[in-house]
Design a protein around this nucleic acid. Structure first.
Lengths: 199, 199, 199, 199
DNA sequence: ATTTAACCGAGACGGTACGTCTTGTCTTATA
DNA sequence: TATAAGACAAGACGTACCGTCTCGGTTAAAT
């Protein structure tokens, strides 16, 4: 799935013609990251992206149709690296490390901020909604942690609900409030989860 | 607090002059609701709102500065009515009724769709972010339910975290996926919460 | 006829709304004259006109659809003034004065250069062709002279042909060559015309 | 002179390499003729020409710099054939036949329409102006006729003026009006010319 | 009863981003 | 080396919306 977005060089490639410039692609992806930090999602425009990247406007439109699409491509590579959590010795530490890492990602990392912008845009735009769902960025990282913890928690529900129970409170707090859940809250939350899942 | 947004007729009112037209205000609020359903948030413009309401553009700009602000005012009145849950005989039913009602609100009600649009816009626009936080629409309804349940759940954490644990999974699922949590999931989630909160 | 183009303030004016800015209109007409001299017709763009006039792009498009249309409006007022020839004592002098004035107009006057540009564009663009024909700028001035001369030239053909015979050689020479007909040629031409028209 | 444009295969041709494709050249010249009729001069683009000809864009730019240049080359060969008038028994018939042929050429023949487009473009573009003047397409054909008539018209002025007097009214009428001079007008014009030229 | 002041609708104003188009250059693979 | 294909940077195209302004008219409270 990811391939179709990650490797856009595809496209027929029958013969002849100048090949796509990897340099231009990288310049656009970097420009998008920079602009998101500098001016924010709302003030980011296709025109501005092209200019910041030193690239023709048509070149941007040739490969992407919206700024959300560019943002997704720019974000999708980073997210896996940044959200990988090294296994811990026990479930409580494992889950807490994940939630801490998730909070950090969503509030500090450029990729995380991009992810929030995408989720925001998804509420307005059906196309973006589909893109975000298909990429399903959080589920991948959460699944990994949950699979490690599952053997020791016989009451854990199936993955979709467990993911929602684990990450939902953290994510929705960040999306609707100024402040994320505190480390103490995170710890309490993990304890409650394990209490429930062990029964 | 809500008053400051609901009664905008204030504004100095030193003396003389034609009073604000309540008719124009209502026309704008209704136009915004209609347009959100008809064309979606992204395609909704200040110009379009004025035209749909049969109102001069200056009249819109005189009282609101962004479409988010109008939407908030249109939404804030409905939300309390729609999310009120009649008390049930036991905690499990009380919580389940609330989550069911919340799911319904966020996926069906025009006011709920407006709320999602506002949360979405808040990720792009700091001003909207503040508006949404200040209104704190969900907390009000959740607090009521939690207060009813609290006497029977000694382990329930303080309200902010409990609200996140209760509504977070439901909300974040709706914001990031096509499908909300199923009734069965909601039931399972309530059971888990009560298991944790009773210990 | 000319009124419809000369008084563009018309347009219904049924009620309400900010009235058209005469200042903006004048700024555009002057900008077009300037640009025609500075950069030439081909390099003149709607964007450039708006910028030179210090006017929004939409303001230009609101009142004119092509640069030719603007040019015509800018030209149509000047042309009558510049091509009026004071009556002379005899036909030969009358005609020669007109042709001299015409040559001067077409090779020196900004309005004359604009007229040539319009005739040029008329070869490519049917809409411009109609505009130019309808305005019929040269015929008006030629008719005046011909009417003065006619009483003394019984053999003069009807006005359309006489106009072509009088001005055609001068105009086509200027349109297809670097150099206009010389004063000596003009004199010779007038003599030939009168010879023919007196028989 | 014509050679430099007609035989563009020249270009040094010092040593090896793939020779110019005569097939590509013909395809371009035909595409230009087709497009002029189909979409008109203004809507004709270098890109469109290349695509219609089934030719690479670089190939077009390699051999011509503007569409006017291509048009001139496409036009220059035809014009001589189409404007040749077989000698008639008397000056009046000779001149009338020429003017009739000229009218037909300018209003019907693709090459004539191309010529009008070139004259039109010459008003905007100095380079085209020079090209058209240098080719001097009409003078060649007019000179031929005038030379036949001259022995019988002692008062005919030198060729440039005589050409202007003969063809100018016809040409300028076509360039500035919807309708060319009528056959009756042409006949009248010839009579007038001969009246003047015989004195 | 008149004046004053803020409201109302309409719509033109100077801007700016949109997404598309053409320009002339370049880079590739093929002939 | 010339070719067809097609990506590239640049920038004009005409449209839409932005937020402001100007108009003539309306509606009340303060003169």
């Amino acid at each position: 799935m990811a391939d179709s977005t990650v490797i856009p060089t595809g496209r027929g490639r029958s013969h002849g013609g100048r090949p796509r410039s990897e340099q231009a692609r990288q310049a656009v992806l970097e420009a998008v990251d920079d602009l998101l930090v500098d001016v924010g999602y709302a003030a980011m425009t296709m025109k501005g992206i092209a200019e910041r990247a030193g690239v023709g406007r048509q070149t941007v439109y040739r490969w992407w149709t919206t700024k959300a699409e560019i943002l997704l491509e720019a974000c999708v590579e980073d997210i896996q690296e940044e959200l990988v959590v090294v296994p811990r010795s026990n479930p409580a530490e494992d889950l807490l490390a994940y939630l801490t890492s998730l909070t950090e990602f969503l509030t500090r990392s450029p990729a995380g901020i991009a992810y929030r912008a995408l989720v925001g845009e998804a509420q307005h735009d059906t196309v973006v909604r589909d893109l975000v769902q298909r990429a399903d960025l959080l589920a991948l990282s959460a699944t990994e942690v949950l699979d490690r913890v599952r053997p020791k928690t016989p009451g854990m529900p199936e993955t979709p609900l467990a993911t929602a129970q684990l990450a939902g409170p953290v994510l929705s707090q960040i999306l609707t409030s100024a402040e994320p859940l505190s480390p103490a809250h995170l710890k309490h939350h993990v304890t409650d989860l394990l209490t429930a899942w062990r029964h």
